[in-house]
Design a protein around this nucleic acid. Structure first.
Length: 400
DNA sequence: AGGCTTAAGGGTTGACTAGC
DNA sequence: GCTAGTCAACCCTTAAGCCT
């Protein structure tokens, strides 16, 4: 079933029908919602309250349909993966009091956190796409209705653009609590987002015209997830806690690379490689980036397989070099140095003078006007781009 | 799983050109 | 004819890729 374009369970729909019938104002409803489930500002305004009241009373309660994953064409972390991530974190004895999920989408990490941690006092979720804000709230209700005895932290799901959200206000409000920042920020470059404007991609990704992003990174192009990760490190590097985000491998690499200069106070940097074809049905290398906040800056990263937890390698900085495998480099660093030969990328280009041949009076002549005798079997026809303007090509003008 | 395409970014090279 | 600057063609790399 769907309300406000968000999936909703039969259980939650039945509950809301009863709940809203006995509630007159949205302020009253918000108070009751907070008392019962700890959710702040369930309704942003009276319009939302009246709208939901009408929708649940009109909705013919029927069998629960499977959520339509493809609906918005975006990339939600599935519940199994979210749970596996949270279980992995709880095995590391991470006992967070504050959970923050930037770009929370349908809130699967928030719900997985509620079921895996008993120590949480406050939960913050931020999401730009309003139907997902509803779906996250419905999902939380569903979790508490199914698990009535579970502990209920204070929960705030904010409907806004991640770049407008003031993370530093959370860091000021909770200076000593143990944090867990968790989630799956969008794996897309800002230049790609410009192109999304006219296509059918999800509204939640359409952050275009963000002012000052170029200026802040000094680059024309960067990964949104990388920017979000750096923004979070900036706000929370001096807090006790952990950061665990699903990001592209290139983002993990860039963050470890930049640690040499930026020296964010993060240590124990780990990368747990996931099968993104299986989890998200996409062709890109991605991993769970995991690190501990408020440690002396680390400039290297241990890489594991997420499913077997088998260690693969460590990469990072060694003797002012950024290397992809610290162990291998350490063993072979003696032969590292300056190459005595100059490496030239234009070798093929330069060879044209010698190897590009024209047939003159039965001989081959190159661009240096050298006449060369060659076996026919080693000569191939060669088309320059200017030859391709002819619609029909019968012979090649040049040979190679 | 692996071969292949395409578009874009960033860097290098050498031809060309204006000015002297 | 020389020099400094410009520009286009190239190179390699990478990709929430594409296809069998």
């Amino acid at each position: 079933m769907r309300i406000f374009e968000a999936n909703i369970s039969l259980q939650v729909c039945t509950f809301l029908k009863e709940f809203l019938n006995n509630t007159s104002s949205f302020e009253n409803a918000n108070q009751k919602m907070f008392d019962a489930f700890g959710i702040n500002t369930f309704f942003e305004n009276d319009f939302d309250f009246q709208g939901l009241k009408e929708s649940v009373s009109n909705l013919a309660i029927s069998s629960v349909e499977e959520p339509d994953r493809a609906e918005y064409g975006d990339f939600q972390t599935n519940k199994d993966l979210a749970n596996a991530v949270l279980q992995h974190l709880s095995k590391k004895n991470i006992l967070p009091e504050i959970i923050i999920e930037p770009t929370c989408g349908k809130g699967n990490f928030i719900i997985a956190s509620l079921s895996n941690f008993k120590t949480v006092k406050r939960v913050f979720g931020i999401e730009i796409y309003k139907p997902y804000v509803w779906e996250t709230k419905f999902g939380i209700l569903d979790f508490f209705l199914s698990n009535p005895n579970s502990y209920k932290p204070e929960i705030t799901i904010t409907h806004c653009n991640i770049f407008d959200f003031d993370f530093k206000s959370i860091s000021k409000q909770f200076p000593t609590e143990k944090l867990l920042i968790i989630g799956n920020p969008p794996w897309v470059t800002n230049s790609k987002l410009g192109g999304l404007n006219s296509s059918n991609l999800p509204k939640k990704s359409n952050f275009k015209n963000q002012n000052g992003l170029d200026a802040m990174t000094g680059k024309g192009n960067f990964d949104i997830a990388e920017y979000i990760t750096l923004m979070l490190l900036d706000a929370f590097q001096t807090h006790t806690g952990y950061l665990a985000l699903l990001v592209k491998n290139s983002v993990v690499r860039n963050i470890v690379f930049d640690q040499k200069d930026k020296r964010y106070r993060v240590g124990e940097i780990e990368k747990y490689c996931i099968d993104s074809k299986k989890e998200f049905n996409v062709s890109v290398e991605a991993a769970l980036l995991c690190c501990q906040l408020n440690l002396s800056p680390s400039i290297e990263c241990d890489e594991f397989d997420f499913y077997s937890l088998e260690k693969r390698l460590s990469f990072g900085w060694l003797n002012n070099k950024f290397v992809s495998n610290l162990t291998d480099y350490d063993e072979t660093k003696d032969i590292d140095g300056v190459c005595p030969f100059e490496w030239r990328q234009g070798i093929k280009h330069d060879c044209t003078n010698v190897m590009e041949l024209e047939r003159v009076n039965g001989h081959f002549v190159n661009k240096l006007s050298e006449e060369i005798k060659l076996e026919e079997g080693l000569i191939y026809g060669f088309l320059k781009s200017s030859d391709l303007k002819n619609t029909v090509i019968k012979n090649t003008r040049k040979h190679i």
